[in-house]
Every structure is written in structure tokens, then in C-alpha cells.
């Protein structure tokens, strides 16, 4: 669990009992002269709600992009559930059960809230062209659609979006869009969710409810979360462990108490030089 974990330790065989669910090893990404991520390495253990913090520009969102295949790293390796997913396409990563939300909500404006949510489930038989056309096959599509509709309504009710189900997603407020993103990834029935500032613009009552729900999903269904959040209270009260990213690399990680007492974290946030 130390950031200095070496590559040898990372290469324990696939399916090993001891292997963390997500392993990020020495990933780097450059955009021209700017080094966005510079050799970041960390693990996320199954069933945790891990926090990922760091000052603006620390490389948090880029790290998400690299893990989920939206960008490919210049160097390094990403392993999920015992498999190397470094060069996977985003849809392949999502199919494996690793999904993400976006920092700036990407709702599908000209689709209704329900359509947005119904898009998400994996393995929809009706996504095959011929099945949606040929009469008998379509009956099975309709059956599955009924089941998914019920699940979609339940998810929307939980996130208090059900009164907006028939509206275009483009008419939602900022906070509602964040919730819609969350509804979508939950509907994919994932093993792990990367949440990029999911609580920005969400009212405090619902925020508490959401965090409770994340804990519930973690405890009962073994879901794993990696959470980027700027609200330190949320991080310190709900996440364990907490990983601190600074200038594209892992500065430190540990329990909230450990991180809070780390001088280097304070300096990073205050913009001071980091003395190693």
C-alpha cells in the first residue's frame, strides 16, 4: 500500500487473491511540454471508498482518463481485476465493470432523463440491430426493456430525479446533471466506479443521502469507489484510504488522519515547495 510498490510486486498473477482490484503503475502522460501525469502509482483495494485529492492541475482527471482508456498513457500500466487494461478502449474498460463519471457532467441533452438512464445497462439484447427488427426476437427485447425500465425508475427515485424522468436532460440544473451521471453509471451494474467530483452542486441533504448510499453499495454489494472531491470534509469523513496527487505523481497516501497530518500535503495545497 505504499506508493513505492515496485513493478515486481504488481505482477502477481491474474486472479490472485491478494491482488488489488485496480493497480496503477508508473503511468505518465505528456501534452506537448506539459507533464500532466508523471509516473503515478497507486492501488485501490476491492470494497473501499478511496479518495483521490490534490490541488488543481495535480492530474486527477487525466489519471481518470488514463485508467478508463479515454487517453492512453505514454508509459506505465493499468490493471483491473487481474487484467491489463492499459490499451483497452473506453467501451472495453466499461464492459469489464470499471466505469467513470465526468467532472463536467456530460448529459445527453436531446434525450430524456429516462433515455439517458436506459442507455446505460450493459448487455442489452436490443442493441443488436436485427433483434430490434425481427418480430419474435423483438419480443425478448421488449421483455428486457420492461425489466430495465423498472430498474431505471428505482434509480431515478433514489436520486430524486423521478419527477424529471420525461424531460430532456438538457433542461436539468448543474446538480441534477451530476446526479444523472451517477444514475447512469449505477445502471451499468459496475464493479468499480470512478467518480469525478460527483457532489459539486448537489444540495447538502441529498449529498448526505448519496454518501450513505455509496457506503451501502460498498458494504452490501462490494462495489469499489475512487472519488475525486474538493470538499475536504467529505474526503476526511468518508474516504479511506486517501491518495494525494501532486504534480502528476502520488505525494502520499494513507488514512484520512495520516494524510491530514502530513506536512507535504498542506504545502502542496498552499502552493509551497515540496521538500523531500
Amino acid at each position: 500500500m505504499t506508493p513505492e510498490t515496485t513493478r515486481d510486486e504488481a505482477d502477481v498473477g491474474p486472479g490472485s487473491e491478494t491482488e488489488p482490484l485496480l493497480q496503477v503503475r508508473d503511468i505518465s502522460k505528456r501534452y506537448g511540454g506539459i507533464v500532466a501525469v508523471d509516473g503515478a502509482s497507486f492501488d485501490v483495494e476491492q470494497g473501499t471508498l478511496t479518495g483521490l485529492i490534490g490541488p488543481n492541475g495535480a492530474g486527477k482527471s487525466t489519471t481518470f482518463d488514463l485508467i478508463t482508456g479515454n487517453q492512453s498513457p505514454d508509459a506505465g500500466q493499468v490493471r483491473f481485476d487481474g487484467q491489463d487494461v492499459t490499451d483497452d478502449r473506453p467501451d472495453e474498460v466499461a464492459q469489464r465493470g470499471l466505469v467513470r463519471t465526468f467532472q463536467i457532467a456530460r448529459e445527453l441533452d436531446e434525450m430524456t432523463v429516462l433515455e439517458n438512464v436506459m442507455l446505460a445497462p450493459r448487455n442489452q439484447i436490443g442493441e443488436t440491430l436485427w433483434r430490434s427488427v425481427v418480430p419474435v426476437a423483438r419480443d425478448r427485447v421488449v421483455d428486457q426493456e420492461r425489466d430495465l425500465r423498472e430498474a431505471a425508475w428505482e434509480t431515478l427515485e433514489f436520486l430524486e430525479l423521478d419527477h424529471l424522468a420525461g424531460e430532456y436532460a438538457g433542461t436539468l440544473s448543474g446538480g441534477q446533471r451530476k446526479l444523472l451521471e451517477l444514475a447512469r453509471v449505477l445502471m451499468t451494474d459496475p464493479d468499480m466506479i470512478l467518480l469525478d467530483e460527483p457532489l459539486a452542486g448537489v444540495n447538502p441533504t441529498l449529498e448526505t443521502k448519496l454518501l450513505d448510499r455509496l457506503h451501502e453499495l460498498r458494504a452490501e454489494e462490494g462495489l469499489t469507489f475512487l472519488l475525486v472531491e474538493h470538499d475536504m470534509d467529505v474526503i476526511m469523513n468518508h474516504c479511506d484510504p486517501v491518495i494525494v496527487l501532486h504534480q502528476g505523481a502520488v505525494l502520499t497516501q494513507g488514512s484520512p488522519a495520516e494524510v491530514r497530518q502530513d506536512e507535504r500535503v498542506l504545502e502542496a495545497y498552499l502552493g509551497g515547495e515540496v521538500d523531500e
Binding site: 467501451d91 464492459q95 466505469v99
Partner: peptide, 8 residues
């Protein structure tokens, strides 16, 4: 990007 992020 969203469609791909949702596994399509």
C-alpha cells in the same frame, strides 16, 4: 464519449 464510457 458518453456512449463509449458506458460500454458501447
Amino acid at each position: 464519449v458518453v456512449a463509449r464510457a458506458l460500454g458501447k
